[in-house]
Amino acid sequence: MSAPDAKQLENAHAFFKYLNVLDWESLGELLSPECKHQYFPASVSPPDGKEMRGKQDFIDIAKYNFEVLFEKFNFHAPLDVVHGSDKVVFHLKLDTSLKSGTKYNTEFIITLHFDGEKIIKIREFVDSKGSSDFITALMSEAQPPA
């Protein structure tokens, strides 16, 4: 494995580390200024209605979710990690609950695409049934930022 590939894998793991500790500045440093986040599958519309967002929008929605909506959250150790040319794919589980007590335990696939050492694209594939049920509950409790 070449040095850039090793750094990509390190940065991919750091992505979740920074989410877990709410370190938005360090998370932002991992992302390219051109970074785009996409939410899949198309049948599940995210609460803010944006299927694609840029770097700052991604950080803002993550910050809102983890600091305002969620009481606690825990990204489990990856169930699977696939490291390819300029991308790292994670199969993960997440346990969380809203401040209201509504629990949300899910699993998802996230692909981080790299340009050098920076994340240029995030493709998040969610559990469609679990996410739909959770988004319905979420919409009845809180309104996401515009």
Rank of each mutant, 00 (worst) to 15 (best):
T96R: 14
L19Q: 12
F15D: 00
A3C: 04
N11G: 03
L22N: 12
A42K: 11
F114P: 00
P46Q: 02
A6P: 02
K129Y: 12
K129G: 08
Q143L: 10
I119H: 00
S2T: 11
E67T: 15
A12D: 01
V44L: 09
E124K: 01
E107V: 11
G28R: 01
K36C: 06
F66L: 10
S131T: 14
Q38R: 11
N105L: 05
T96G: 13
E117F: 08
L98T: 09
M52N: 05
E107Q: 14
L31V: 01
A77V: 13
L69F: 03
V44G: 05
S140V: 04
S100A: 13
I110H: 00
H76N: 08
P4E: 15
F134K: 02
V21I: 09
E67S: 15
E141N: 04
M52E: 14
L19R: 12
F125Q: 03
N105V: 12
D86H: 10
D23S: 13
F90H: 00
E67C: 13
Q38M: 09
V126W: 04
K103L: 14
P47N: 03
Q143I: 15
H113E: 14
Q56K: 07
G28P: 00
F90E: 00
E10L: 05
F15W: 03
G130V: 03
E67N: 13
E107A: 15
G116S: 10
F75T: 06
N74Y: 06
S43H: 03
L69V: 07
P78G: 05
K72T: 10
V88Q: 00
V68L: 07
S43E: 14
T111C: 12
G54M: 07
G101H: 04
